[in-house]
Computed example of a mutant assay.
Amino acid sequence: MARDIQITFDSADPAKLAAFWAEALGYQEQEPPRGFPTWEQALAAFGVPPERRNDASALLDPEGHGPRLFFQRVPEGKQAKNRVHLDVRAAPGLSGDARMAALETEAERLVALGATRSSRLEPAPPMVAGHIVMLDPEGNEFCLD
């Protein structure tokens, strides 16, 4: 039986990192519980103190196909290279110069949102199509593929 998955990010600022990934992937913040127009109102009603209201944030694919993304506050910063990372498919079906141009365009967009460009791997047919390694605003590696 196939399972639904959630991808969880440890974060210093869950709301800020969730906002970056929402823009990067076209995701939306998960709606607050029924009866509450905002998360702020829901958390206040649940008795969550103001200093704890940015402990977590969640995003959903508006079309319902992708996994839920969950961002949780942790006290420690990122220590080493990610052992698992996201590949953002920014140039499906493209190859060669057209592929790399599409990846460059997406890299520029994400840098404007707070990402950092790390490196570029040039195409080496037939096995490597080329990609760009990026860092999200908290330093988590991901690839534009």
Rank of each mutant, 00 (worst) to 15 (best):
F70P: 01
F71W: 13
R73L: 14
R73H: 15
R73C: 12
V74H: 14
P75F: 07
P75W: 03
P75I: 12
P75E: 15
E76I: 08
E76H: 15
G77L: 15
K78V: 03
Q79N: 10
Q79S: 12
K81H: 05
K81E: 10
K81T: 04
N82R: 14
N82L: 07
R83I: 15
R83A: 14
R83W: 09
V84G: 05
V84Y: 11
H85G: 02
L86H: 10
L86F: 08
D87F: 01
D87T: 06
D87Q: 02
V88S: 04
V88T: 06
V88Q: 04
R89S: 00
R89P: 03
A90F: 00
A90P: 01
A91N: 04
A91E: 00
P92L: 06
L94V: 02
L94H: 01
D97H: 00
A98T: 09
R99T: 03
A101S: 02
A101H: 08
A102D: 07
L103D: 01
L103I: 15
L103A: 01
E104G: 08
E104V: 02
T105I: 10
A107T: 11
E108Y: 02
L110K: 02
A112H: 15
A112R: 15
L113N: 00
G114F: 06
G114V: 08
A115C: 12
T116Q: 15
T116W: 10
R117M: 13
R117C: 03
R117L: 13
S118T: 11
S118M: 09
S119F: 13
S119K: 08
R120N: 02
L121F: 13
L121I: 12
L121C: 11
E122Q: 10
P123I: 10
P123S: 07
A124P: 01
A124M: 12
P125M: 06
P126V: 08
P126G: 10
M127I: 09
G130C: 07
H131M: 03
I132F: 11
V133H: 01
V133L: 13
M134F: 09
M134A: 09
M134S: 00
L135C: 02
L135R: 12
L135G: 00
D136E: 04
